[in-house]
Simulated scan of single mutants.
Amino acid sequence: MTDDLRPTILVVDDTPDNLKLMSGLLKDLYRVKIANSGEKALTIAAGEAPPDLILLDIMMPGLDGYEVCRRLKADRATRDIPVIFLTAMSASEDEEAGLKLGAVDYVTKPINPAVVLARVETHLKLKASADFLKDKNDYLEAEVARRTRELAAIQDVTILAMASLAETRDSDTGNHIRRTQHYVRLLAEKLKDHPRFAATLDDVTIDMLFKSAPLHDIGKVGIPDRILLKPGRFEPHEFEIMKTHTTLGRDAIEHAERSLGTPVQFLAMAKEIAYGHQEKWDGSGYPQGIGGDHIPVSARLMAVADVYDALISRRVYKDGMPHEKAVAIIAEGAGSHFDPDIVETFLALQDQFKEIADRFADSEQDMDSKRKLLEQAGCQPVG
């Protein structure tokens, strides 16, 4: 074994003869460092090239061996370096005290050279095995973390791709997806300590809400262009067809769940949002006509976010409504269209809603793209 690859032993003793004796014993097999005080030993151990093992005397002026060991084990950088006490203190209580401090072994003077070498070799092998396992565990943990991040990124991209597919056929822009995501998260974070919502909204659920929100209108991919892209009001029969986007969205997500063969939390929540965000607090919404707390919390949050954004957003067939007027309409809908506690929270956060709307405002390029889409579909944009 070359000198650079040999393990390093730090010998700590305040007696020059003892340092010379141990250096002579170890030098042919190991790289040897010496320290004639506890303070110097701690400095060497915490340096850029820490030793692989420490042979430590107990009776030294200044810091004794016990205190040195205690400090080594208290420091994250040095706590895994094995310590063997090498001392003239031969009482059993001394040995017990040293082992309790974290030493791996206790050898009394005068030493038996063969015994010292054997114990050093044993504990170096144990440390090498421990280091190997630690490195392997660290690698595995890093690999799991990397793959988890990778899967999460793939998941996010897939969600946005699916949502964008719906958006490309709709008069909404891609920024509608971003805005509603942030609106929903803002509301949920404020409501997570509310007595009515604390049992439902935690940090994990809020992350899932943010991830799932873009799929709220995924069912629009199944609505014919003549209805989806119509710039004016729907005829009654057209509105009935438009309403089916909630069921189409739920069914598409259910199909994805069945294909996976295992439950996925964000898909379950996405299904709730897609199917329920057009329900109203008073039961007059669709598709089921349910009301109150029967509507999933995720869908109630999206209802406020979606309507606010629809009101304030500029479309190729209409101008956006002023923020203050949109807020007034949401407030008026408390207890009829919307959960009143969610509306109360929305009103407290209305300035942050406007900030989100401004941050992700639609550009002229977005509007031009949508105008072209309407023209291609044979619709005449208004304005």
Rank of each mutant, 00 (worst) to 15 (best):
E93A: 06
V116L: 07
M162P: 00
V120R: 03
R119H: 02
D172I: 09
K127G: 02
Y139D: 10
N175D: 09
D131Y: 12
E93P: 04
L151A: 07
N112V: 14
F132H: 13
L124C: 09
S129C: 10
D131C: 08
K109W: 03
D94T: 00
I154L: 15
V144Y: 04
Q155K: 12
V116R: 07
D170Q: 10
Y106A: 01
E96L: 06
R149P: 00
D138E: 06
K134T: 14
K109G: 04
A166I: 06
A145Y: 04
L140D: 09
A161D: 15
L151I: 08
T158W: 14
R179F: 01
K134I: 13
A114F: 01
Y139I: 03
V144G: 01
Y106C: 00
T168S: 15
A163V: 02
D135R: 13
A142Y: 01
D105W: 05
Y139K: 13
D135N: 14
K134W: 09
A128L: 12
I154V: 11
I154E: 15
A145Q: 11
R149N: 13
L126H: 08
R179N: 01
G174D: 08
H182R: 10
K109E: 01
S129L: 14
A103K: 06
A163Q: 02
L126M: 09
T122Y: 07
S171Y: 09
E121V: 11
G174K: 08
K134F: 09
N112M: 12
M162A: 14
G98T: 00
A161E: 15
F132W: 13
P113Q: 03
E167Q: 12
E96C: 01
A163E: 05
K100Q: 02
F132M: 12
E96I: 08
D105A: 02
Q155G: 10
A161P: 12
R147L: 07
R179E: 02
M162I: 13
A166G: 15
L101C: 03
A163H: 03
R149E: 14
A142R: 07
L160Y: 15
H176G: 09
E96V: 10
L160E: 14
A130M: 11
L99G: 00
D94C: 01
K134M: 09
E96R: 11
E121K: 14
P113C: 05
K127V: 06
T168C: 13
R178S: 02
A152F: 11
I177H: 04
A145G: 04
R149T: 10
A128K: 14
P110D: 03
E143D: 06
D94L: 00
V107K: 05
L160G: 11
H176R: 06
A166D: 06
I111D: 01
A145I: 02
L126D: 00
N175C: 06
A114C: 00
A166V: 08
S164W: 12
E150I: 08
S171D: 07
A118G: 11
T173R: 04
D172E: 07
A161R: 15
L140K: 12
T108S: 06
D156A: 15
H182I: 04
S171I: 07
K100P: 03
T173M: 04
A163W: 00
A153K: 15
D172W: 09
R169N: 13
E95V: 03
L140Q: 12
R119P: 05
S129G: 14
A145L: 00
V104P: 00
V107H: 01
L117M: 08
K136T: 15
F132I: 14
D172K: 08
I159Y: 05
D172Q: 11
